[in-house]
Amino acid sequence: MPHIALPEGLAGITAGFAFRPETAKPMRELAHILLHEANSLTPGERELIATYVSSQNDCYFCQTSHGAAAACHLGSSEIVKQVKTDFESAPVSPKLKALLAIAGKVQQSGKNVTSTDIDRARRLGATEMEIHDTVLIAAAFCMFNRYVDGLGTWQPRDETMYAQMGKHLAEEGYRKRPAEQPEPEYYRTAREAADKELAVETK
């Protein structure tokens, strides 16, 4: 059961997003730019980085939904499995392996990234922007994963649901909301109280 009264029937991060649309908006926007918008790294490669970090953080919902999105882009769920278990021997480019190594370091701590890691990525053809985006994707999933697990969200073990979600994410990206959610009662109360307080302060 979730730690707080999240809207029912919504899995993982979608429940957190529906509970607090104000924070959902920039979080969706960030994911959309990092994973879906045009980039010299393919969406499949970026989803693999997201999946790998989520798997290192042991977040079931994120590694399964982004793993499904990666599989959809790449046309193979086998590659996703191999990247999670041992990316150095997975059938991905040497450049992506070097970027996954950086992402794995960021997952532990930003300070663990060394100039040797960066030199390896550069030598294998990674650009400055690709290194930047890898660091930020890995860092962002250290947020998304903690958000999903820290609220104790509902994470059904339902492969079909994740396959559908992955297909939707691969095709549509992250910016669009699945459906408009009504503002929760507890949020409205807090917001109105805050607005009232602000009105008094402004006077």
Partner: peptide, 15 residues
Amino acid sequence: AAAFCMYNRYVDGLD
């Protein structure tokens, strides 16, 4: 708390 696990890694991960 989750967001600062991102911001902190972003700031230190790029040195």
